[in-house]
Amino acid sequence: MNVSFEKVSVEIGGHRIVNNVSLTVPSGSVLGLLGPNGCGKSTLLRTLYRAQKPSSGTVLVNGTDVRSLDGREVARRIAVMAQESTQEFPITVREMAMLGRVPHQRGFGADSAADHELIDTALREVGATHLAARYFAGLSGGEKQRVLLARTLTQQTPVLVLDEPTNHLDVAFQLELMSLATSRGITVLTALHDMNLAGEYCDQVALMRAGELQAIGRPHEVLDEDAIRAGFGVDSRRLEHPLTGRPLIAVARITPLPAPAAQQQPINHETEIVKENA
């Protein structure tokens, strides 16, 4: 199921967060969205799963405008692993994972045997079977991410949206999660900060800055030294990974930042007043 954004702009409170972004994600491919904090990655993704209405432009899933579908239909096509997770009420890991079945069920009847099997499989895949009876609120950050990933898997959608999925994760699970998500043959859109993860797992990388799409293409074509310098304000070199032989981006800040405005002497305002009065 392919996804395309056509001239999508988002304005919130008079600020243009996303400006005229057009891009297409072919069916079954993985797109990584990169860019500094606040560049509009999450907002762009939110227009896809209808949490944010674009002020202009359309978002299409398999050629259908997502705004023309109802929430349930969108939720059967697109699963989301977002950054927030609230925990005011006691909810078990199993119940959290079972929420992925909500768009597929009706009424107040039972969860079917098939539903339970899906949950078991998903929890096993993300390595959270042993957590099933625990309360979600009591988990560590990494364990929570595992459970939220399991929820998206039980949702069984052809499109998966991940918003900075590797936050709070140790290196091993970062790699595990990315390969779990990208090896299923479904279309994946993910906001990322780690350029090497993007290079490793994404078919395409889109580089955003200040709401605009700077570049899109194969990871190591887009992520050259100039683009990284322009996008993030850091210097970088392309290396060869000593173990895998694949390209590796090493970042550092060697060019000094623009000099800050000349520092003023601290002023004691009381002496100023005394002077004035004198």
Binding site: Y49, R50, A51, D70, G71, R72, E73, V74, A75, R76, I78, A79, V80, A82, E84, S85, T86, E88, F89, I91, E95, M96, L99, G100, V102, P103, Q105, G107, F108, Q155, V161
Partner: peptide
């Protein structure tokens, strides 16, 4: 009849929207 949607709302607004709840 809306029990499942109520369950989804426990997970937060953003999650509930992503699970198809208006």
């Amino acid at each position: 009849l809306r029990s499942r949607a109520l369950n989804a709302m426990l997970a937060g607004d953003e999650a509930a929207i992503a699970l198809g709840v208006n």
